[in-house]
Simulated assay, not measured.
Amino acid sequence: MTHPPFSVNPSDRQPNRLRVLIADDHPAMRHGLADAIDAEADMQVIGQAADGRQAIELFRQFEPDVLLIDLQMPRVDGLEAIATIRKQFPAALIIVLTTYAGDARVMRALTLGASSYLLKAAELADVVQAIRSAVSGKPIVDPGVASEMARHAGCESLTPRELSVLRLAAMGQSNRAIGQTLNISEDTVKSRMRNIMGKLGAEDRTHAVTIAMQRGFLDQ
């Protein structure tokens, strides 16, 4: 279930405050963030979006100083919203605030244009500070997320063709079925799967799917 977007009346906007847009499909999360941000003397929440499509619409309408956005949302997810917004507004400051911490997912968000990446377990004070830091040109990445990224630094990434095989494997398709779907031979499927397992350090295809899901490869 989606909820209508919320934005402040233009007459209620406060000058000399950082204008923040929040995008999250959980009302309690949005409202909690809004209360914490509005309590700051130098910040004001100018809008709340319940999905990625609303986030794009409100960003276009208000051009906030900072967008706080979740990744997992209905209709349009956070990654697609980030890509769309950054294409139209290359200087947009976007902070990801999510529960999803896989290193491939993080790299995808940062590559698309997010300036900072925080987890929802963060203290509200840390989120507020991340907003100020983003505006000051100092991106922040959650320490645990940064550690995970460092652990996989230098690891070979999966190619688009390998990802296409892995996605179908995650759906439970056999090698033969994957080959038929992708119009490639079963031997080619097996070869790609061996490459995937080698890159991920997986023992078998089920293990490869599990690792890929944890690291966020299947979100790309």
Rank of each mutant, 00 (worst) to 15 (best):
G172K: 06
V209W: 04
V189I: 04
T159C: 03
S116M: 12
P74L: 05
L158R: 00
D51F: 07
L58F: 08
K138D: 10
V165K: 04
P74W: 12
Q180H: 10
P139I: 07
V165L: 14
K199A: 10
C155P: 00
F62H: 14
K120V: 02
A41K: 07
A50N: 11
R13M: 13
D204M: 03
K87W: 12
F6P: 03
L68C: 04
A81T: 05
N16K: 14
R192L: 13
T181Y: 07
I140W: 08
D103T: 07
I140Y: 08
Q48A: 08
L163M: 11
I184T: 01
I196M: 08
V20N: 06
L163N: 02
K87D: 01
D51K: 05
P139A: 01
S133E: 14
A34E: 12
L58W: 01
A92C: 05
L93W: 03
V209I: 05
H207L: 05
D204A: 04
A146R: 15
V165W: 07
L67N: 03
R30K: 10
Q173Y: 12
D103F: 15
E203T: 11
S185H: 06
I211L: 14
A130N: 10
V20G: 03
Q61Y: 00
A212S: 08
A212E: 03
E40I: 09
R215A: 06
E63C: 11
V66L: 13
D70T: 08
L71A: 01
G201M: 04
G198V: 03
E123S: 14
R151N: 00
R132D: 00
L166D: 07
Q129I: 07
T99N: 12
G47P: 08
A23C: 07
H207Y: 03
Q44K: 08
Q88I: 13
E63L: 14
L118C: 01
C155W: 11
A121Q: 15
E203G: 04
H26D: 02
P74G: 04
E186W: 02
E63A: 15
I85R: 13
F59K: 07
R105C: 04
L68R: 08
S116D: 00
S7Y: 14
A153W: 05
R105T: 07
R215E: 10
Y117Q: 01
T111I: 09
T111G: 06
R105A: 14
R167H: 10
L33W: 12
M107A: 03
D103K: 06
T2G: 09
V76D: 03
F62D: 14
Q54K: 05
A170Q: 10
D25M: 07
L97C: 13
S185Q: 04
V145Q: 02
I95C: 05
L79M: 09
E203L: 10
L112C: 01
A208I: 04
G154A: 02
A130D: 02
E148K: 06
A28S: 10
P139L: 08
G198S: 09
Q14W: 11
D35L: 12
S115P: 00
V96I: 09
R215L: 06
G78W: 14
P90F: 15
E148W: 01
K87N: 11
I131L: 11
A83Q: 14
Q220E: 08
E162V: 02
M29T: 14
M149D: 00
L58P: 12
L67I: 12
L58E: 08
A122G: 05
M193W: 00
A212Y: 03
M149T: 01
I37Q: 06
Q220H: 07
P160F: 12
P90Q: 12
P64T: 11
L218T: 05
D219F: 12
